[in-house]
């Protein structure tokens, strides 16, 4: 049980962090913060496809993390009762 708790917590939190970072990166790219878009020579017309990919990835990642963290809460409830 302890191993399972650790695994779901680790992967859940990591998925959440990765998902949030992907969305933050999408904003950084869109607003060209730190000149990241210019330095990477990404054409403006390609930005929308990058944004779409990053948002979909971030969304799926956050939800996957949520499911794992919810399992952790349920495991806590089971061991508590």
């Amino acid at each position: 049980m302890k191993v399972r708790k650790f695994v779901v917590t680790f992967f859940g939190v990591t998925q959440e962090v990765v998902g949030v970072l992907a969305i933050v990166f999408a904003y950084v790219l869109y607003y060209n913060l730190l000149h990241i878009r210019t330095n990477s020579e990404i054409p403006l017309e390609h930005v929308s496809i990058y944004l779409l990919l990053l948002f979909v990835f971030g969304f799926v990642s956050i939800l996957n993390g949520f499911f794992l963290l919810r399992e952790r809460v349920e495991l806590d409830g089971e061991s508590g009762s």
Binding site: V7, F11, G12, T14, Q15, V18, N64, F67, L68
Partner: peptide, 18 residues
């Protein structure tokens, strides 16, 4: 790193019972 995390997290979610 992302691919390892995504694949393992995906497997955990698929094989979950809840």
């Amino acid at each position: 790193f992302v691919s390892i995390i995504s694949i393992l997290a995906g497997i955990f979610n698929i094989v979950s019972k809840g």
